[in-house]
């Protein structure tokens, strides 16, 4: 899914290009820096956990990497592409699952996937296998009526339809019950390509990743193997009040 050799020559990039590489990346809103001085290199296929308390800059960092927000400072390359030069090419290779649904409340799950597929150039998308993969079935009602767990599954189905080289997940476990968390964890574990997970459910999310960074007040305070993520979180925030255990 990651490298389609039949693509246009524009897309033929040297294979070792990192999924994300940023140097001195920073973003501000008005007079406030959301994050700054972020140097990060995520090799293709690697899974990175971004830890941090609320307001530490995780969400903004993910939005900047996803090209939805332009960086205020620094250089960013996504899959070897500078998004400032060719945003379309960069966007084609990545997908972001954010707090918000990113889908249409008035359409059914099937409609949503079909509409999205068509925009991606997949006109005759077979939605049934995709829905089955995320544990949903065809339902005629609009997703306005869906539970939080079903919404998350549908978001993941849209992600599978796109099949990007780089997946950005912002708090994928938020608002889910333990069963939902376990199911979503399984789906994320099976994702191909590079994955960046922002979460404060450190224990659960660190199991999914190889490497982790810890953000605090807009700065990267620690970077290391995911096995030490819990230790790093405790070193900064102390105590045993870790969220998302089990």
């Amino acid at each position: 899914m990651t490298a389609d050799t039949s693509e246009a020559p524009v897309a033929a990039l040297p294979p070792p290009a990192a999924a994300v590489s940023c140097v001195g990346l920073a973003r501000r809103f008005g007079r406030r820096w959301a994050f700054s001085r972020v140097d990060l290199e995520v090799p293709a296929g690697q899974r990175l956990l971004v830890m941090g308390a609320n307001g530490s800059g995780k969400t903004t960092l993910l939005k900047v990497i996803s090209t939805l927000l332009a960086p205020s400072l620094g250089q960013l390359r996504v899959c070897g592409i500078d998004p400032a030069e060719d945003p379309a090419a960069a966007r084609r290779r990545l997908h972001l699952l954010s707090h918000s649904l990113g889908l249409y409340e008035d359409l059914s799950g099937e409609d949503n996937l079909r509409v999205f597929g068509r925009l991606l150039g997949k006109d005759d998308l077979d939605v049934d296998p995709v829905l089955r993969q995320v544990g949903l079935e065809r339902r005629p009602d609009p997703i306005r009526a869906y539970s939080a767990g079903m919404r998350k599954r549908l978001q993941l189905a849209a992600l599978l339809v796109k099949g990007p080289e780089l997946t950005l997940l912002d708090e994928p476990f938020a608002a889910l019950d333990p069963l939902g968390c376990a199911a979503v964890e399984g789906l994320i574990a099976a994702l191909p390509g590079a994955v960046i997970v922002a979460s404060h459910q450190v224990v659960r999310a660190s199991r999914l990743c190889e490497r982790a960074i810890l953000m605090d007040q807009g700065a990267v305070r620690w970077m290391g193997p995911a096995e030490q993520a819990v230790e790093a979180w405790r070193a900064l925030h102390g105590g045993d009040d870790l969220q998302g255990g089990g």
Binding site: W33, R37, Q217, A219, M223, E231, L236
Partner: peptide, 23 residues
């Protein structure tokens, strides 16, 4: 206008095993 960048925060040190190369 851009305000000055916040001062770099110290990298967290974990026990005896050294941390990765954070900014």
């Amino acid at each position: 206008s851009a305000p000055a960048l916040p001062a770099a925060l110290p990298t967290l040190e974990l026990g005896q095993r050294g941390p990765g190369g954070a900014a």
